[in-house]
Amino acid sequence: MQPLRTNLESRNAIADYIQTEFPFLENTGCLSPHVGGRKAGLERLQHFPLEKYARQRNFLDGAVSQLSPYLSRGCITLEEVRQWALQHQASHSVEKFVSELAWRAFFHLVYQDEGDRILQDLEPPKVPMRQHQTTLPDDIDRGETGIPSMDTFIRMLKETGYLHNHARMYLASYIVHFRQVHWRTGADWMYALLIDGDLASNHLSWQWVASTFSHKPYIFNRENLERYAGSVLPGDPRKDDPFNYSYEELADRLFGNDYTPASSRASGNYR
């Protein structure tokens, strides 16, 4: 029973050491920009421009806290972040941000109640889902789907261990509804890759996208993707674009006649 080394001086030294101690790990070949530890978490909190949050949070280049690695790994606590936010003058941003923190608590509450049942459908799906495959297609895992926007999200996820909330939603929706992969398969895959991987927030969000923990499936179209993520995406070919439809057309293509979507569908917001 030999303890592991604690006198490693640099992030590169830690990375090399981890690779020798855990040889089964796939070598990422790069360091994540998210440095572990409470100190780094508190620093990030101090630099987070909370006042911009409500207006920008849905945009991939907008102001979000990127605190999830620190919150999920417990380096900083939900309660201290909430108290920090409430020191600011009341505003829509403060309220919005605190309500997002509450999402985390809500998911934990459900997990506390349900235990490992959250790994299965919590409700019947609202759209046909019996044909969905339970292995992840290789092109998704490798980030070689041929759709540059989705490949960009997959690359970001693998290179950094983090993704913006809206990118997680797009990617989950693409995998479950456009590619017909079972949500659990996608959820396990993303959980493994995220530094903030948390079975409650992750698997319940996938169920929310799939419609087994919500009233309807989450889908997006080209217009929505361009509006919120356009600035960070390389641009997709317009020929055979799977996303370039109205929501009514998309629902018809993806779910057939069994499903009528609500007419308005907002971005990035859970209901």
């Binding site: 029973m1 030999q2 303890p3 592991l4 604690t6 490693l8 992030r11 830690i14 990375a15 981890i18 690779q19 855990f22 790990l25 796939e26 070598n27 990422t28 360091l31 994540s32 998210h34 440095v35 572990g36 530890g37 409470r38 100190k39 780094a40 690695p69 790994r73 380096c75 693998k158 950094t160 261990g161 396990d188 959980y191 493994a192 890759l193 995220l194 530094i195 991987g197």
Partner: peptide
């Protein structure tokens, strides 16, 4: 669960801030 290297590195870096931590 095929936990990624980035997560393990983040945990390791976090642990090194805990004085006298013993990691196994």
């Amino acid at each position: 669960w095929q936990i990624s290297k980035h997560r393990i590195q983040f945990i390791y870096e976090s642990l090194l801030e805990i004085a006298d931590i013993q990691i196994y």
